[in-house]
């Protein structure tokens, strides 16, 4: 299984998580979507040298994971798996920004290191919140929320169909390439010519499938409009969830709690 295969297994797993049951799962997806969006905006709105003020924000993903009964280890692993890109771009910062920002005993900490750390913190926060959101909501509910928030229907329907057929088609691709390698007999690389044959055949099959799906839709009265069932409702719990967290986020955004806490503690130590 290559990286994509693993990613797909993840979609399946996250679907299973989303099928779970907790008060968080039952919340209207719009409330969760909006709250997570506010969370991300608050986190990324800090200046690039901010680290300590970002820390309280981890309360939100921690809350989602704990209250949604999500496997924390799995999410952490997933974040680590996708982190190389953030590391790659951030890692130049220490080299490029060498101005000493503060002195920790004999150690001079440059701005580059601080901003690097900040990038990593942002990355961990935003990614964990997004993953947790999906794991307690599921793509279908997210799509329903998007539709009801005014996202154009052709796009939402496209997302739903894409999600529906990812497994069918990647399964086909996997079987094709396995069939190829079984008849190759030695670990030979896929040549460009064979590659084109594989992809071309896959594409033809895909288009045939599209035609069959279209016919199946016609047979059940499809007239160009997909009608989506509405399940969710905005109630008191949704409003409380979104408002409550918004208050937290704005407090975290404008009051540096860790700094105050740290000063109080270091003050006591003195």
């Amino acid at each position: 299984m290559n990286k994509l295969g693993k990613n797909l297994a993840d979609i399946g797993y996250m679907d299973t998580l989303a099928a779970g049951d907790s008060p968080l799962h039952r919340l209207d997806p719009r409330a969760k979507l909006l709250t997570t969006f506010l969370f991300i905006v608050s986190v990324v709105s800090f200046n690039k040298y901010e680290v300590s003020a970002l820390v309280p924000f981890c309360l939100y993903p921690v809350f989602l994971v704990a209250a949604g009964k999500l496997p924390a280890g799995y999410l952490v692993k997933k974040i680590l798996l996708v982190s190389p890109f953030a590391v790659l771009v951030g890692v130049f910062n220490p080299a490029l920004d060498r101005q000493i920002l503060f002195q920790l005993g004999p150690l001079g900490i440059s701005g580059g290191w601080v901003s690097f750390l900040s990038i990593l913190a942002r990355f961990a926060l935003t990614v964990s919140a997004a993953l947790a959101l999906l794991s307690i909501t599921g793509i279908n509910s997210v799509c329903e929320a998007l539709l009801r928030c005014g996202v154009p229907k052709p796009f939402v329907v496209q997302l739903l169909f894409l999600n529906r057929y990812i497994f069918a088609l990647t399964g086909e691709a996997e079987r094709m390439s396995r069939a190829r390698s079984l008849r190759t007999f030695r670990p030979a690389a896929v040549s460009f010519r064979v590659f084109i044959q594989l992809i071309g055949n896959l594409l033809l099959r895909t288009m045939d499938r599209a035609e069959r799906v279209y016919r199946a839709m016609l047979c059940r009265g499809f007239d160009g409009h997909i009608r989506v069932v509405r399940f969710s409702k905005i109630g008191r719990r949704e409003i409380a969830f979104t408002l409550g967290w918004s208050v937290f986020f704005s407090v975290f955004r404008f009051v540096n709690i860790p700094l105050m806490l740290g000063q109080a503690v270091t003050g006591l130590l003195k």
């Binding site: 994509l4 797909l8 329907v157 169909f161 690389a189 896929v190 599209a210 799906v213």
Partner: peptide, 29 residues
Amino acid sequence: VREEADDRKIPLMGVLGAFIFAAQMINFT
């Protein structure tokens, strides 16, 4: 897309999106 009113495109777009993922599972050297 809505103006084009080509019903056939709705499932076609969906499976082609999935095809992009599927095609990315096959690499060549």
